[in-house]
Every structure is written in C-alpha cells, then in structure tokens.
C-alpha cells in the first residue's frame, strides 16, 4: 500500500516510539512537574499544625460525636423552628429580589446590548458581588442595618445578582443574532425588542438558574448566622457556643434534609422546563 520508495522499517519506528506524554512541550511538562513538587513541599512545609492538639482530636472527635447522638429536636424546638423560618423566608425574598434585579444588570453586562459605560459598570457590580464570599458581604450589611435576617436577605440578594447576571449575560451574548434582528426589523422599540427577541431565548436558562440559585441561597442562609445575619446558622452557632451538640446535630440533619428536598425540587423543575 505504501508508495514510498524506501520500505518502511517497523523495527526502527518501534524503537523510536515513546508513549505520548500528557503535556507535549517537554519544557512545560517538566516545569509543571517541578513546580507542583516544589509547591507541594513548600506548601505542606509551611502549614503550621499543632500536632499534639490534633492528636487529641481523635479522642475529642469521639466525645464530640457521642455528644451528637441522639440528635435532640425537642428541647430547642422553638429556636430551631424560628431559625428555619428565618432561613426559608430569607431565601425566598432574596431569590425573588435578586432575580428581579439581576435581569437589568445582565442586560447591561451584555456587550451586544449595552453601551460601554453601562457595560463596565454592570461588569464591576458582578465582579464585586462574585469575588467576596457571602459571609464577608454579610459582615458589611450587618454593620449597616444591624443584626437580623434583613442583613442576611440583603447579602443573599446581592450575591444572587452577581451569580445570575454573569451567567445570564453570557447567555444573552450567545443568542441567535438573526432571531433578535428579525424582531428589530419589524420596527419594534427597545423594550419590545428585549421582550420578544432576547428574553424568549434565555428564558429556559433563566428558570433553571433561578431554581439552582434558590437551592444555593438556602444553603448559604445556613451560615450567615455565624456573623449575626439571622437564619438557622444563628441557632446553630448558639448551639455550638453552648455545647448543645445534640441540638446542633438536629439542626445539621434538618439542613441536610431541606437541601436534599430543594435539590430534588430544582432538578424536577429544570427537567420540566426543558
């Protein structure tokens, strides 16, 4: 079959053959390996561990786990319910407000819709909202509006804006130009153009992301209490502070149960939308 003049030397080719490496460029390959090794040594080396304290950990952990059992749902029932209601209401309101506000921000952060100044401003909002962990934002809001679920709600709403607007803006930038142009060609105004040409294309994703964010917001609402922003995290923190580990265990179980329920519900909703 081979048309080349010299016959193919399979033995020589086999001698020359090497298994293909993961990274083709040898400099980059060895650089990455060496870098990883050096980092691992330095990184692990600089971790300061109090080994005697950690060694006690096993025994402590055992005692701690023993304190978890059996979970006590009853003694602090009122507190748990109150915290749970706070968390759930925070989740609902913040998701609603966050989504409502994220749509204009997303439109502003889409290069194909917004003029440059508005684009930069909206992208800035998104970057700040996404870069800071919710807890840090909660600290600022607590400082501004005082302790309680309002601070938590504002935090989650702000985080929702960054999350939703970034993903939505990506989607809007990817829309079918022809469809949007067809609507514009009918002489539609800017608002009708958005409503008829752009939103229908991103609606399934909007709904899917909203369900997902609802899920995340509940999860996050469980920790904002640690800095005084209300919710079930507050109750959990108090339980830990008072060494009421059986109550803490109960709260953790409740959180896991609700997260699971949210996950199934949002999975179901996303399938239903598609």
């Amino acid at each position: 079959m081979s048309l080349s003049a010299a016959p193919f030397d399979a033995a020589a080719a086999a001698r020359a053959w090497r298994p293909p490496p993961l990274i083709a460029n040898p400099w980059l390959r060895w650089g990455v390996y060496l870098g990883a090794l050096v980092y691992a040594l330095v990184g692990i080396g600089t971790v300061e561990v109090n080994w005697t304290r950690a060694a006690e950990g096993l025994e402590r952990g055992a005692r701690f786990l023993a304190g978890f059992f059996p979970p006590d749902f009853v003694t602090k029932r009122e507190d748990i319910l109150e915290g749970l209601l706070e968390s759930l209401t925070m989740t609902v309101v913040s998701t609603a407000i966050g989504i409502a506000l994220s749509i204009p921000v997303a439109l502003g952060a889409s290069r194909n819709l917004a003029p440059l100044p508005i684009y930069l401003f909206c992208r800035g909002v998104i970057a700040v909202s996404r870069s800071f962990q919710e807890v840090i934002i909660a600290i600022v809001f607590v400082a501004m509006v005082g302790f309680g679920p309002l601070a938590g709600m504002l935090t989650l709403a702000f985080a929702t804006i960054g999350f939703m607007a970034k993903l939505l803006a990506e989607d809007i930038e990817d829309i079918e130009r022809s469809e949007a142009e067809a609507v514009r060609a009918t002489g539609a105004g800017w608002f009708s153009w958005i409503a008829w040409g752009v939103l229908p294309q991103v609606k399934p994703r909007l709904i899917g992301l909203s369900a997902y964010r609802l899920d995340i917001n509940f999860r996050e609402s469980a920790v904002l209490g640690l800095v005084g922003a209300g919710g079930i995290g507050d109750t959990l923190n108090t339980a830990f502070d008072r060494y009421e580990f059986d109550t803490a265990a109960a709260i953790l179980l409740v959180i896991i149960a609700i997260v699971l329920a949210c996950e199934y519900a949002s999975g179901w909703l996303r399938r239903w939308v598609q």
Binding site: A10, A11, A13, R15
Partner: peptide
C-alpha cells in the same frame, strides 16, 4: 513488549497509516 510495537507499526504501514501513529 517490543515485538507488539513492531507488529503495530507493520500493520499501520500495511494500511498506510504509519505516519499517523502519534
């Protein structure tokens, strides 16, 4: 084993794909 690789190259050459091995 080396003879497996030699055999593989022979076959690849037989169907005209030896230059595509990698």
């Amino acid at each position: 084993p080396r003879r497996d690789i030699v055999q593989a190259f022979r076959l690849l050459d037989r169907v005209g794909l030896a230059h595509m091995a990698d």
